[in-house]
């Protein structure tokens, strides 16, 4: 039984390590920040989750703590990559595209126009 758990654990650990490596590779190869966020943070998330689960199998009495770390990574990583993507976009970093597909630019533009219009209104009020 223990033998089986060890084998299962090492399978998870090796898969996790490989995904961590693929995440690193994606970060180096992909062309811009948004694509890198895709490959980088998420392949790493799966890699880390799988590796920690594997350690949980190797040391069954650590399983609860390992699961807590997995849940924390699963909850926190999408938040940080989302915050980073939004921050970058608001920082006026445009995504690299082949066919110029960018629905968000439209929204940002409209919002900018609305804000400008409101500022104009306020100025008019102040002047009158």
């Amino acid at each position: 039984m223990e033998q089986v758990l060890t084998y299962v654990g090492y399978i998870f650990v090796v898969i996790g390590a490989i995904f961590l490596f693929l995440g690193g590779l994606g970060i180096v190869r992909l062309p811009d920040i948004y694509c890198r966020l895709q490959a980088g943070t998420k392949a790493s998330t799966l890699g880390a989750m799988s590796l920690i689960l594997g350690v949980g199998f190797l040391q069954p009495q650590w399983m609860i703590k390992a699961l807590i770390i997995i849940v924390f990574i699963a909850l926190s990583n999408p938040l940080s990559s989302h915050a980073l993507a939004r921050g970058s976009y608001r920082h006026k970093i445009r995504p690299w595209t082949k066919e110029d597909i960018d629905a968000y630019a439209q929204y940002i533009k409209e919002q900018g126009e609305n804000e400008a219009a409101e500022e104009d209104k306020q100025q008019e009020k102040q002047e009158s």
Partner: peptide, 12 residues
């Protein structure tokens, strides 16, 4: 966001 290939930039 957690399924690679897609992630949420903003929700309005």
């Amino acid at each position: 966001t957690l399924t690679p290939g897609t992630f949420t930039v903003d929700v309005v």
